[in-house]
Amino acid sequence: MFEIQNLHVNISEVDKKIIDGINLKINPGEVHAIMGPNGSGKSTLSYTLSGKDGYQVINGDIKLDDESILELEADERAAKGIFLAFQYPIEIPGVGNLSFMRTALNSQRKYNGNSELNPAEFLKVLKEKANNLNIDMEMLKRPLNVGFSGGEKKRNEILQMALLEPRFCVLDETDSGLDVDAMKQVSNGVNSLRSDNRSFLIITHYQRLLNYIKPDFVHIMAKGKIIKTAGPELAIEVEEHGYTHLLT
């Protein structure tokens, strides 16, 4: 179970409070969506949960299975099963996609006391995951995200998600920059990874992604707070009437 308790977050650089008391409980197998206008603190939330430097928790707690993760570094949180699908996946020139993924998987395995996979074992695992997601192995031989199209970058995120088998996934505006076909592909990928012991937090501006990935709960976030929570119908309401009437 993933739990956010009375979370207050400052961005160190500007010393400005961005998140102003959020409470959220996500049970295994659940899919939650957070919607909200620009500047409501959605991306700050995703960086805070995954442990990026510069996001200072001034109050409250984040817990995974009743244990606080606040003291853990980003790589330790990842190894514990927290995965962030980036809005803008980062390019790292000269670093092979495959090599990156194997380093990541083995780092996590090592952290969790499992044996590391040799290249052959790794390739076997990766091939299977890539096949399930209809991802061409050719993409894996290129440098990490370098020269990838928007769709390829996002599919590469989903592949990493499939490979690392996290327990809690945050998808930060995964729909941004995708055409309808690419969005369908990515959504199918996410749906195939839904399971009873994996939960999702989907951050998005628009309802359209939620047509493909059906959430159990929808939260509206504004000015660093969750102002309304309901079922999937709330997303449709936002789509029809915008955020304004909810904010007043």
Partner: peptide, 29 residues
């Protein structure tokens, strides 16, 4: 840049390994 480092960290790679990875990528040619 911090974003490259954070991306590696978020995938479970520790900082030292992440730097080695990025540098070796830079020198690959």
């Amino acid at each position: 840049d911090d974003d490259q480092l954070f991306y590696c960290l978020q995938r479970g790679i520790n900082e030292e390994d992440a730097v080695a990875l990025i540098i070796n990528g830079f020198c690959k040619d």
